[in-house]
Amino acid sequence: MNIFRLAGDMTHLFSVLVLLLKIHTIKSCAGISLKTQELYALVFTTRYLDIFTDFISLYNTVMKLIFLGSSFSIVWYIRRHKIVRRSYDKDQDTFRHYFLVIPCLVLAVFINHKFTFKEVMWTFSLYLEAVAILPQLVLLQRTRNIDNLTGQYVFLLGAYRALYILNWIYRHFTEPHYVHWITWIAGVVQTLLYADFFYYYFQSWKNNEKLQLPA
């Protein structure tokens, strides 16, 4: 474990907690894409298949349970909670899951480190995580008004993967056999997808104005 990875995990944890807090306290999911949340639940499910078979550390297991629990409860809140569901904008959140899931699945079958079920599922979860934010970014551009918590949520999500890139660079130099080029490529693609959001986020923060994404 290195500081970059710990900072990345904490940022990721914080992003999920910010979202849960927003939905739980103000009982609203305005501006939140259910599609992205469902994709994240799928990412964690396919990535943590080994949660009960391979024990890595208490930290690793606890964090996996938190990510699984929080992502499914966010989906539950938006789908089932009698108050929260009313603020879900299903007419705007129309991104088709299968446009992302199917290409990632096909890619994972052909490009992976080892052709076993668990390894293909793990690789699928990496590819899917890289693009899972797209429905959310599309929704933000459609609804144009981005409330602070949603903006912070997306920012933290992008920051966590950027910190992971630093972690991979660090591990590449400190651990001889640490080779996970698939992870590195997926991670860089994921972070690049946030690049334009980061640009507008910093612009709005610098000019101290409301965050607006171009149509």
Binding site: N60, M63, H113
Partner: peptide, 10 residues
């Protein structure tokens, strides 16, 4: 040693 596919990251 080949690429270790043991995934210790989240």
């Amino acid at each position: 040693v080949g690429e270790s596919t043991e995934h210790d990251e989240l």
